[in-house]
Every structure is written in C-alpha cells, then in structure tokens.
Design a protein around this nucleic acid. Structure first.
Length: 473
RNA sequence: GGACAGGUGGCCGAGCGGCUGAAGGCACCGGUUUGCUAAACCGGCGUACUGGUUAUACCGGUACCGCGGGUUCGAAUCCCGCCCUGUCCGCCA
C-alpha cells in the first residue's frame, strides 16, 4: 500500500507511476474520496466531542431523573418526564446527525480503501521505462568456462541436445501422463531419481541459504486467510492466480487460499506487529509448496516442467529498517546468493533488470535471473529448439509497500514506530530449475551428469542413466 | 465434530451502563539517593487518524478493551453473529 499522505502531496508521481507500469487506476477519484472522507470524518469527530461533553454534563442528571421517575407520584411523574424530554432533546439530535455521518463515512471509506489497495508503488527512477517484458535490460551474463554462450550447444558439446521433456522420459524422471490423469493439465509427478534430484536441489539450496548465509530456517502455512494475501500485495490484483478454498460455503467463518509463494507465510507472520528495532534485519528462508492457477496462460508452455500448477520453492525474505541504502544493499546480497548457487550448479545465467511494465504493482524494483535452457526457444530448420533464456528467479525490492499493507512496524532509536522495508527473492524453484540442470548437464550417451555439489544429496550418484531409474513400470 | 471456560495496554491482572484510555502489579525509560550492584523513593511509559502551524517538539479532538453489528442520551460493561485460545470427550497423520 502506498502512503496516502504522499499521494495527497504529489498525486502526479503516482499517476505517472501507474501509467509506466501499464496499470490503470482511478487516482483522481481516490483523491476526491480522500477529501470527502477527511471532511466527513472531521465533522463526525466534532459532533462526537460535543456529544461527549453534553453527556458528561447531563448524563448523570438523566440517570438520576430516571431513578426518581420509578418511585414518583402522579404529579411528579409528569414534571420529571417533561424535564427528561428537554434534557434528551439535544443529544438525540446530535445522535441522528452522527448516525448520518457514520453512514457517509462508511460508504466512502470502503470505496476509498478498495482503490487505495490498487494503487501501485511507483518504480524507482533508475528502473528502465518500458511497455513490455521485451524492454527488460540485460545486466550481465555468467557461464562456466566450459560453455561459450556465443556458440550453440552442439558447438560447445559436440552433439545435439535433447529437451528436458525427452530426457525426463528417457531416464524415467517424471510422469506427466499420470499426473494429468489425476489432476488435469499442468500436473505431473516426479519419479525415482527425478524425485531424488528435485529433493536434492531443494535441500542443497536450503542448506546454502540457512547454513552459509545465516537465514533462519522456517516452515510456513501455505493455506492462508485472505488478509495475508491482501497484506503481502498478491490481492486484489492477483486474486485469479490463487486457488480458493471456499470453506465459508460449508459454514465456516472464512475462506482460505493456497499461497503461490512462501513469501506470503514469511511476511504474514509479522503482520500487525511492532518489532523491537534491534530485531532487524530479519532474514528468513523457507521451503514450501507453491500453487498457481496460471489463469491467462492458456496455451503457453503447456508441455514439460516450465509452467505447472504445483511446485516447491526455497524462498528468501529480508525485513529491514526503512532505509533505502540498506534495502538496496540487501537486494544485491540476495542476488549474489543466487549467483553463488547457480555457479555451483554450473548453469549459465543472466541478470535482467525488469522494466516498469514488468514489475507488478508492489515492486519498486525487480531483477530476474534467467537460466539458459537449450531445449527452449524458436525451432530451427530441423524443427529443433535453438535454446533460450527461461526465468528461474525473481528478486523484488518493495520499500515499505508490503509492510504498510501488513502493518508491520518497528521501533526506531527515537522510539517512533516506522513501517519496515521488505525484500524477497527466489533461492531455487523446483522442478523448473531441473530444466536447465538436466539440459545443460546431459551427455552424449543420453545420461545426465550430477553436479558435484548435489552428489552428497543423491546418495553419491554421479550420473543419471536409464537403467539406474528405480521407478514404477 | 461434541461439551464447557475465556479473550482488557509489552506481560500479569481489576473493572457497579456515565466520574475508565482504562485501578494495581511486573517489565522498561529518566531522575534522586548511592563506594559498585541491588533496594527504596519520585516521574514517565499504547496505537492510529485528525486539527492548532510549514515541522517526527508541544497542545487539543476522535477512535481503539479479539472482530463486526445492535440496544442506549451514553457501552470494556447489556444483546447478536463471527474469529481465536484453553480444558475435557470423540476421531486422527
């Protein structure tokens, strides 16, 4: 959520910010509603103050009269009733007026809140302006010494690559048909060594981030209340991307939603809290199952492990003090952890500075990491893919946008409560990361070499071969 | 799932429908005293919005006693719905 005070002071910044992100929101209406809300709220407060004052003056008198009324005789009764009516006339008039203002404020406020939640965080000035993902800017690439990105896979390795789908089938690492049979399109199963590899990847990444980089290991709920989804900024805009468990239909008090990332649980845990300043920065990592409906992606990446409804992800999150320099430095550090990971896995990658159009509404800045996937991309004359980059990681910098929504604050040195800054980044998402892994490490004989860093997590296995697969027939 | 009990400030805990933003205690901060520490004593100590002003200093107003609604001139206190917690029973990885 943006700071409404900043919007009042400089609406143009937010109008431009939304336009640059290609997000259409009615900021003029929000400003109108904001003014009305403040006006009516102030009037209501003035009336209430008056009411309280009167109440204190005549309240006890009313109470006393009502008491006397009970034991009063006929003549006295009439007199008391008249006095009572006189005393009550003014507060009753006030009460009606307050009731009217209450209704106005409630009505305005719900529209105001709904709009406010939709206003995107403007991108930072150093984020390239753009109209689509095509305008993202490549920052740098990395490749192992043995792989020249300017040459084709065949030129590098001396044989034509298979796609990950072909490799998964041949080595019996995954079963798409039965996954689809049970759950429908975009579902799959990892089988035998495929599952071992999947787990090895996750554990390797989790150990790296927690043991080597001091992030606190966490398990988090992946079934969450709507407040968490709104608080973390995934709702209302991304509502159709989340699976919705309509428990209220069965009589429960609230619905639940499946998280699309562990970030929801990690950030949600500190909602409505004021943290002691010395607790920051909070560095946490979780490994969790992620669920995405992939609404609007019909027809895209339908085959293989690229775009699926359920996967597992190691996620890193940092909650730090409200300091731009500190935020920016954490962003870099989180990215460098991923670079270390990918280098250990010997996977070529590139860093992409996302342009304004690709940021999403909550981010001030986002850097994606894409791995080279030889089995992806346009088909050549022989109907074989030419290879392409595929997104495997995404590092977001949000300033206080998320903490403001979540109401996560900390107490600074002067004792003030301040909204914290938050950042998040993928450490590793699997099975998507298995695409570059098995495509890049495939060998001429159709086997796949297991990178050294994963071997301890694979019972020491060095090569995945067809005959080593121990899966169901 | 069934039966009870209960949700009050950082924590514990009191609270007759008006004098309660809320007693008391603990913790914390400042001060006095003090060889040091401790103790004792004095003072301070919630969040948010909003106005006086341009200001995180100061003064005022409003709201907040799980959440939402209702009764009332007036609600922490009465009523209704929901959420959550605890205990017992049942079921269960």
């Amino acid at each position: 959520m943006i700071d409404i005070k900043q919007l009042r002071e400089n609406p143009q910044r937010f109008i431009d910010g939304a336009a640059e992100k290609n997000i259409s929101v009615d900021i003029t209406t929000l400003i109108d509603l904001d003014e009305q809300r403040r006006l009516f709220t102030r009037q209501r407060e003035e009336h209430r103050a008056e009411q309280k004052k009167i109440s204190k003056e005549i309240g006890p008198q009313i109470g006393k009269l009502k008491g006397l009324l009970k034991s009063a005789g006929e003549e006295e009764r009439a007199e008391f009733e008249t006095t009572l009516a006189e005393l009550e006339a003014k507060p009753v008039a006030l009460k009606n007026e307050i009731q009217r203002l209450d209704d106005s404020v409630a009505q305005i406020e719900s529209k105001w809140k709904a709009l406010l939640l939709q206003i995107p965080q403007p991108a930072d000035p150093d984020v390239p302006r753009g109209t689509s993902a095509d305008d993202n800017v490549q920052l740098r690439t990395w490749n192992p010494k043995s792989y020249d990105l300017n040459q084709s896979f065949a030129e590098n390795r001396g044989f034509e690559p298979k796609t990950h789908i072909e490799l998964l089938h041949a080595l019996e690492l995954a079963d798409f048909e039965r996954g689809v049979k049970m759950s429908g399109t975009r579902h799959y199963m990892m089988t035998g060594n495929g599952m071992r590899l999947h787990q090895a990847m996750l554990r390797f990444a989790f150990d790296l981030i927690t043991n080597e980089h001091g992030f606190t290991p966490m398990s988090v709920p992946v079934i969450l209340r709507e407040e968490c989804m709104v608080g973390t900024g995934f709702f209302p805009t991304g509502r159709e991307q989340a699976y919705h468990i309509e428990e209220s239909q069965r009589g429960a008090g609230h619905d639940l939603f499946l998280a699309g990332t562990g970030e929801v649980g990690l950030m949600g845990m500190y909602a409505d809290e004021i943290l002691p300043g010395n607790k920051l920065p909070i560095k946490m990592a979780t490994v969790s199952t992620c669920f995405r409906r992939e609404a609007g992606a019909a027809g895209r990446d339908t085959a293989g492990l690229y775009r699926i409804h359920q996967f597992d992800k190691v996620e890193q999150v940092v909650i730090c003090k409200a300091d731009e320099a500190e935020s920016r430095s954490w962003h870099k550090r989180m990215l460098s952890i991923v670079e270390e990971l990918l280098q250990k896995l010997e996977l070529p990658y590139r860093l992409l500075q996302c342009c304004t159009a690709d940021l999403g509404s909550k981010n001030a800045d986002m850097i994606d990491i894409e791995c080279w996937m030889p089995g992806r991309g346009e088909l050549d004359a022989n109907e074989r893919p030419q290879g392409d980059w595929g997104e495997t990681h995404s590092a977001s910098r949000l300033y206080d946008y998320q903490c403001r929504r979540l109401n996560t604050r900390y107490r600074d040195e002067e004792g003030n409560t301040v909204f914290a800054h938050s950042l998040n980044n993928t450490v590793l998402a699997s099975p998507r990361i298995l695409i570059p892994l098995i495509e890049m490490h495939q060998q001429k004989d159709g086997s796949v070499a297991v990178p050294a860093c994963l071997q301890p997590y694979m019972n020491g296995l060095q090569v995945l071969e067809a005959c080593t697969a121990t899966t169901t027939a």
